[in-house]
Design a protein around this nucleic acid. Structure first.
Length: 220
DNA sequence: TTGTGTTTTACGACCTCC
DNA sequence: GGAGGTCGTAAAACACAA
């Protein structure tokens, strides 16, 4: 019996095979079956007898039986009694075998689904980690920028103080009375030297460098 | 040829639904 | 209570590297 007479290939949904195993896996299965068929002299629906005639307890299904069951599974993963009996008669199998095949097929499908879901969640998790890293990097840069601004405020106050002017009393955030004086908010071109160990241009002018904030636990 | 890892078939225990 | 479901597992069948 030619399986293509029973199930036209145009009815086979290839996306189904893609969703239930890669094309590579499908090809591997097909190759395996071809080799098995070659060894066992065909196997064109012999009623589920043991390939090569070994222990009848484990009867490998033929290509055709497996394919028809696959198509039936694709239509409906649940197996009601009538369909089980029909398939068993159609394929020359014990209804119990058909039921077991569906049970195992459902289990395989579930495993596959779980693997895909895991991969999807892992991808989302990795993306979230990367986003968090970006945010932490941005926070770091903003803090450094704030520090630079505060330094500049102190410098200006100091310069204004050295010229006898006064500012607001130094209660700006993070700039508490460093200059001693109380210069006004006026800016001047004082001669105050740059604070040692800090260069605002170094920080502000630098572009993103992700690695500078990647937490150790992420790299581990 | 053989050792080893993977896939497939089969079964038992237990659960749910009608 | 019976039928059919999931889950875990045993074991046969199979692929493949060494």
């Amino acid at each position: 019996m030619d399986k293509h007479q029973l199930f036209d290939s145009s009815n086979v949904d290839t996306t189904f095979f893609a969703a239930n195993g890669t094309h590579d896996a499908a090809r591997a299965r097909a190759r395996r079956r071809r080799r098995r068929s070659a060894r066992c002299g065909g196997g064109d629906g012999d009623g589920g007898e043991m390939d090569g005639g070994g222990d009848p307890k484990k009867r490998r299904l033929t290509d055709e039986q497996a394919e028809i069951l696959e198509l039936s599974f694709r239509e409906d993963r649940k197996l009601e009694t009538a369909r089980k009996v029909y398939l068993a008669a159609e394929l020359g199998l014990d209804p119990k075998q058909v039921a077991v095949w569906f049970q195992n097929r459902r289990a395989r499908h579930k495993n596959k689904t779980l693997e895909e879901e895991f991969a999807r969640l892992k991808h989302a998790h990795d993306a979230a980690i990367l986003h968090k890293c970006h945010l932490e990097n941005e926070l770091l840069r903003l803090k450094e920028r704030l520090g630079a601004t505060e330094q500049e405020v102190r410098r200006l106050r100091s310069a204004a103080g050295s010229h006898g002017a006064s500012v607001d009393g130094g209660h700006a955030a993070g700039a508490v009375g460093v200059c001693g004086g109380s210069p006004s908010s006026s800016f001047s071109t004082g001669t105050c030297q740059q604070q040692p160990g800090f260069s605002g241009a170094d920080v502000l002018g630098r572009d993103d460098d992700l690695m500078m904030c990647v937490p150790e636990w992420f790299l581990a």
